[in-house]
Computed example of a mutant assay.
Amino acid sequence: MEQSTHILLLPDDCLYFIFQRLDSSSDRDAFGLTCHRWLRIQSSCRRSLHFQCSFSHRTPVSLPQDPISIGYLHLYRVLNRYPHLHSLSLCGCTELPDSGLSILMDYGPRLTSLRLDCCFGISDDGLFSVARGCPHLIDLSLYRCNITDTGLKALSESCLALEDVNLSYCSRVSDTGIRALSQNCRRLRAINISHCRGINGTGFEGCSCSLAYLEADSCKLDPKGIRAMLSGGGLEYLDISNLSWCIQGHGFAALDTRLASKLTVLNFRVCRHIDDESVARIARGCPSLREWNLALCHEISVVGWESIAMYCCALEWLHVNRCRNLCDRGLQALREGCGRLRKLHLGRCCRLSSTAIEVFKLLRGDVVVSDEEVMCIAPR
C-alpha cells in the first residue's frame, strides 16, 4: 500500500531549508501565513529587525510587517517572536525609555549589531542594559543619544568585541569615555566622534586597539589630541574637517607623518589655516594617500600644490573646491603631476581662469573634473 506524502509532514529541518532558499520577500512573507508552525519557522530564521518610526503609546501594532512599525510596550512581544536576531535597529524611536532596553538582558546575547540613532530617551541606564545584555556586540551606533562617560565605561568593560562605534553628536561624552573604549575594546577599528565638543582627542593616548577609521568632524581637537589619535600608527581614514585651531608652524607637529604613513583618506575640509608647509609635510610623509579633501583651505598657494603634484603619487581623488589661492600655476602643477589622479573636485575657485581649466581637461583626459563636494571613497 502506497504511503501518502504531504509537505506538512516534512520535518522542521526541511522546512528551514525551503524557507532559506526563497528569494522573493513576498514569498517569504507568504510562507509564514500558511500555519502557526510555518510562522514559527519563518520567525526563527529572521536575523535582522528594523523599526522605522518612533516608539509611542499611540503607535499601533501591525505584525508581520517589514519594516516593522510598533509601540515600545510591544517590543518584548516582537523580540520574543524573533529569538535569533543578530542585528537590531531602533533608529528614530525617540520616545523609547531606558527601561525599554531592559529586555536585552534576555534577548541581547545573540546581537552583534545594535543601532539606537536618535533615541533621545536613552541615557546611561539604558547603556547599562546594553552592556549587561549584549556581550557580543560588534557594531553599535549611539548617534544623538543622551549618554555620558559613565555609560561608555560600563560598555567598554563588558562589550570587548566592539569594532565599530558611532558617538556622533553625543555632547556629554568626553575623553574619559574615549579612553575607556580605546584601552578596553582591543578590536575597535572604527569610531565616529563628530560634533562631540567635549572631546579634544587625548583620550586616544596609549590606545591598545588597532584603530583604522576615525571621524572627528567639528570637534575641538588640540595638537596633543591629534598626536594621541595618530599614536596607534594604523589609521587609514582620518576626518578632522572644520578644525578650529591653526595647523601651522609648531602646531603642525601634531600630525606626525611617521604615525600617519598608512593614511589613504584624509579630510581637511574647512581647515582654513592649513598652509604650504603643512601640506608639503603630509604629501611627503603619507605616500599611501588616495583621497585628500582640501576644500575651503584658503592658505595653500603654488608651493603647496606643487608639493602635492610631486609627492602624492598614489592620489586618485583630490578636492579643491573654493580654494581661494588655487591659481592657474597651481592647477598646472597638478596637471603635470599626480599621475594616478582619477577625479578632481574643482569648483568656485575664484583665481582660476576658464582657459586653465579647459587646458587641464584637454591634457588630462583621464581625470574627471567635477564641482560636487562629496567624499568619493566609502570609508569602511
Rank of each mutant, 00 (worst) to 15 (best):
S171F: 10
N146C: 09
E215K: 09
S208P: 00
N166M: 08
R144E: 15
S218L: 10
S168I: 03
G198N: 11
C207Q: 11
S156L: 07
H195Q: 13
L167H: 09
Y143F: 13
D149I: 03
C145I: 06
T150K: 14
T176E: 11
E215I: 03
N184D: 07
G177Q: 03
L211T: 05
D175F: 06
F204V: 01
L162W: 08
L140I: 09
G206V: 10
L160A: 11
L181A: 03
C207H: 06
G151M: 04
C196Y: 04
A216Y: 08
L188T: 00
L142G: 11
L211M: 09
C196T: 02
I193C: 08
R189A: 06
L188H: 01
I199P: 02
C170Y: 15
R187F: 04
Y169N: 15
R144T: 10
N166S: 09
T176W: 06
L140E: 15
R144C: 12
L211E: 10
L221T: 14
L137M: 05
L137K: 05
I199W: 07
C170E: 13
R189W: 05
S171D: 12
G203R: 03
Y143I: 04
S218V: 07
A161R: 10
S141V: 00
N184M: 01
D217Y: 14
F204W: 10
S194P: 03
S210K: 03
L137F: 05
Y169H: 15
L214V: 09
E205I: 06
S168D: 14
L211N: 10
E205G: 00
T148C: 02
D222G: 14
C170V: 07
F204A: 11
S182I: 05
G201W: 11
K220Y: 15
R197G: 07
L142A: 14
L152H: 10
S174I: 06
I193D: 12
L160M: 10
S156D: 14
Q183E: 05
G177P: 08
N184F: 00
H195D: 15
R144F: 09
L188N: 00
S194G: 06
A212H: 10
A190P: 07
L140N: 12
F204I: 04
R197F: 10
L214W: 12
N146P: 01
Q183I: 06
A212Y: 01
T150R: 11
E215N: 05
S156W: 08
D222L: 13
C185P: 04
I178C: 01
A190M: 07
K220M: 12
V165A: 13
C185Q: 01
T202N: 08
S158C: 13
I191H: 04
D217A: 01
S218K: 09
